[in-house]
Design a protein around this nucleic acid. Structure first.
Length: 317
RNA sequence: GCCGAGAUAGCUCAGUGGUAGAGCGCGGCCCUGAAAAGGCCGGCGUGGGGGGUCCGAUUCCCUCUCUCGGCA
């Protein structure tokens, strides 16, 4: 169990390179990543919590199959949307892929916008307190029965530092903190201190794509328009024939289109909501990445095409 | 041209003789096993222009401009 957190590496003679290409949704990471990967003999590892799901290609703007032929992509469409997926699984899969790529002499190029997934690769995950479904269900039941105040006070008793850090309304984190305490017997605030990231044997370069806010929002709005002409409605209809995991069911576009399909509002409203929620999401992504001072920002002007972006990154390698 | 209604935040609008709020939008932030999730914070304003009454006007009065209805 504890081994999960140790870095499984083969002994290197030289530094192993890992490159990250991050940024808000719709900024153009995927296209640039392919061109960059071709230049430097890299393979792409998706760093995206929703693109891991199958059957959600339009919803998550997955790179088209023919593009994928140019450069190998990993962790894209690997699990059924009926199943749960989480950071720990992602980390394990991504790190073992890195090892495989190194053996082949390839550079892993992480591309995506899920801040947490990025951070557990670079900075690690605290050891081995996996989610406990039964316990969690029990805590969730208590939450709805007694309110989050009750759970929050309980947490404050066993783990004051965690309680101080977590807002009383943030029930999801309260539950996880309690879950960790109850299963490990140690407070999460203590465990979180031991975190093992990528070691010194790696040479890491981290790039972030950004542009001015209004331009970004325009790109997002346009992308959503395209999703509709590409047939998201049908994709969601097909998707909803099965029971979706909690995670997959929250992908932007699924609840919004479900509302339209249920007749709660017209199509335009569904579109508007998806655009707005995507903008909010992009904003949150930027907040997350902005504080990470290791990121080298590449500022995009409207006229920059993917090749231009790839070139600019290449120069800074 | 006449009559009526209105002009307040980016938008839609509320309210008050003591310099102003709500929703949406927008901005900032937090984040360690659901993360495209979840949570927190912020009013961002020459109250259409000018004049008057008043200790004091966004609020009352006059006037101008504009918008929307109706009548010509």
């Amino acid at each position: 169990m504890l081994k999960k957190n140790a870095r499984p590496v083969n002994s290197p003679k030289k530094l192993k390179r890992i490159i990250f290409l991050l940024g808000p949704t719709a900024i153009g990471k995927s296209a640039a990543a392919i061109l960059l990967a071709e230049k430097i003999n890299a393979e792409i590892i998706s760093c995206d919590s929703m693109q891991v799901y199958r059957k959600m290609d339009i919803l998550t703007s997955k790179v088209a199959a023919r593009e994928r032929k140019k450069v190998r992509h990993h962790l894209l469409g690997i699990i059924d949307p009926g199943r749960e997926y989480n950071v720990a699984q992602y980390r394990q899969a991504a790190l073992s892929l890195c090892d495989k790529l190194f053996k082949k002499g390839k550079i892993p190029l992480f591309t995506g916008g899920t801040g947490l997934y990025y951070s557990v690769i670079v900075d690690g995950l605290f050891p081995a307190v996996p989610e406990d479904k039964l316990l969690r269900a029990k805590l969730e039941k208590q939450l709805s029965a007694k309110g989050n105040d009750y759970l929050y006070r309980r947490l404050a008793k066993v783990d004051p530092p965690a309680a101080k850090k977590i807002h009383p309304h943030d029930s999801r984190r309260i539950i996880r903190a309690l879950e960790v305490y109850l299963t490990a017997g140690e407070p999460i605030s203590a465990l979180q201190k031991s975190r093992v990231g990528l070691g010194k044997e790696f040479q890491i370069k981290i790039f972030g794509l950004n542009t001015d806010r209004q331009a970004l929002y325009n790109i997002i709005d346009q992308r959503v328009e395209k999703m509709f002409t590409a047939g998201v409605i049908n994709e969601v209809k097909r998707l909803r024939k099965q029971k979706l995991s909690r995670t997959a069911s929250r992908a932007i576009g699924v609840p919004e289109i479900a509302g339209f399909l249920a007749g709660k509002y017209p199509l335009d409203e569904a579109k508007r909501l998806i655009q707005r929620n995507s903008r909010h999401y992009a904003k949150r992504q930027l907040t997350w990445f902005r504080k990470d001072k290791r990121i080298k920002w590449i500022n995009i002007k409207e006229k920059d095409n993917p090749a231009e972006i790839a070139k600019r990154i290449y120069k800074q390698l």
